[in-house]
Design a protein around this nucleic acid. Structure first.
Lengths: 310, 310
DNA sequence: GTCGATTACGTATTACGTAACAATT
DNA sequence: AATTGTTACGTAATACGTAATCGAC
């Protein structure tokens, strides 16, 4: 025998030789499928293999875990315990590879979420340039809750809100770091024939009862509009180019912001009427967890430069 | 290639082949010992073996988990994560064999604890006869807390207290089942020359200031005596036969109960004076968890028969 | 008969050790 | 020179499949 020379001494009580993975896998499967044959076809190995594995497992545990009759094998009480643990270990295996791969993905990607689309249009180019070779992924979310939860869980490196986030837990040091980003102001885009076309400015409640063409992937705007405009009927559209085509071809009013023109929605023989409610004239803030502030210093510098020049 | 015929199809993405135990073991060890050579000598395998294992592990995870220089290998951030999980899985392995073997031991032994020695003298023979071939283990404990905790944890199948145990949590059904067992009454054993020798009965406080020879493995008796006898100086002894020899050879008073004679401590030219305090004239109760009452019916029947005839 | 578990036996896989090598200290 | 990690190569351990056997339904 080669290898460990003390084996000859240790054979009386082998130092609790670690249980092999395949045994746990097969035991867990046996607890599920109840017969060796079904385990065999499930795991794509032969019955005799399972039979021997379970014998060996039982032998290594040193206690009987099966109730055997001539052509039936069932787990006894100890076997059920063992199987429960085996399942736990199996899922721990999966958790391990999951965790490692997730961590790797997080290292390779900069993921952020935004409460509105406009910050994404501006921020993603900045980040892509800053994190060359990395994946920059941006999510649009309707609610702040999701954004904060994913920021805290580490799913997001950064989020964009309409207000800064301060520490509500610790009095001394903030949990979050917030920095102002772009501003966005909502206007209504109406044809000259529209009843509101002459107005210099509007309140949301002035739009009561209007039929308004609207994009439905616009983050918090959507809920604000639905909430603040009484009896409005929104004609939802989720394709941007068709939306602007319909808007041009019809007299239906649409929304428009100071950021909209950057992505090519230009008004044609229409009027732009500012909406003056505070809720729709927002200052966006980029927020990260306080402990990441140093790591993301380059980002916040780039954002500051962008904000100042823009 | 024999075996699973679809392997040829699946080779593009091997269905997340489960990580082998030896890899986890070696990874965990590497996180501890920091170099392959030290891992090798710790686990009693060669360095090249570790080297290849870690390469294979890294390959299977699909992400780099090491920082490699020509003659140095260290875990990177991902490797630390992997190692943390590996350690968890390793201990889960140990927990599994531990749990199974513990469960087996519990099935093979009837373990109980008692607040006093006398119930053990009576109960163990009964249980041994009832559970032939099983191990009957009896523990003497000084406090009820330990007994109850171990009864609840399953370490004890049964405990003996000086009072029944009723449900304090659930109003309807009791958590415990209690059945009366033997009674035990404390007396003082004194030589005829002793100042208390003429007394027909005693209170514990009458023993104030006495030097008393006492055994120190007598469960609750010890704390009761220490608590209720003011200024007593106890001469502790933990060997029973030498205690009775000293008692016979000296004029020192000792304790004695109605159960003492069963184990051969007989008074020789001494007087037995009953002590009348309620705390030292006790009724013992056998207590099990309510859900075990049916399972232990035979025990409680045997106890009842014994109690009635004795 | 079929189905399920076990045993026997040969084989393919693979984790191992030895040896040789490379590079850093 | 000593230490550390890697590669090459042959070997020993072992988990596997096939075939045969036994019992139960």
């Amino acid at each position: 025998m080669n290898g460990f020379p003390f084996d000859t001494l240790a054979l009386s009580q082998k130092h609790t030789a670690m249980i092999e993975t395949y045994m746990l896998e097969q035991l867990a499967a046996l607890a599920e499928y109840r017969t060796l044959s079904r385990v065999a076809e499930t795991l794509h190995i032969s019955q005799p293999a399972i039979s021997r594995s379970m014998q060996k497992l039982e032998d290594e545990l040193g206690v009987p875990i099966f109730e055997r009759t001539k052509n039936r094998i069932t787990l006894n009480a100890l076997g059920e315990i063992a199987a429960k643990h085996a399942k736990g270990i199996m899922s721990a295996h999966n958790d391990m590879v999951q965790a490692v791969r997730d961590a790797e993905r997080r290292m390779r990607t900069f993921a952020y979420g935004s409460i509105a689309p406009a910050p994404i249009w501006e921020l993603s180019p900045i980040l892509s340039q800053l994190y060359m070779g990395m994946t920059v992924s941006a999510d649009l979310q309707e609610t702040e809750d999701i954004l904060r939860a994913r920021l805290d869980s580490g799913d997001y490196n950064l989020i964009v809100l309409t207000h800064p986030l301060e520490a509500q837990h610790e009095p001394g040091d903030s949990l979050y770091f917030s920095q102002p980003f772009i501003r966005e102001n909502l206007s209504l885009l109406v044809s000259n024939a529209h009843r509101l076309a002459r107005r210099k400015s509007l309140k949301l409640k002035d739009l009561a009862g209007e039929k308004i063409l609207i994009h439905n992937k616009i983050g918090f705007w959507f809920s604000v509009c639905k909430e603040k405009i009484p009896n409005a009927s929104f004609l939802e559209q989720n394709d941007l180019s068709t939306l602007s085509e319909i808007a041009n071809a019809s007299d239906l009013p649409t929304f428009f912001t100071n950021m909209s023109d950057r992505i090519g929605i230009c008004p044609a023989n229409k009027r732009v009427i500012p909406i003056t409610d505070a809720e729709v004239n927002v200052q966006f803030w980029c927020v990260c967890r306080a402990e990441k502030r140093r790591e993301y210093a380059a980002i916040f510098n780039a954002i500051r430069r962008f904000t100042e020049t823009a």
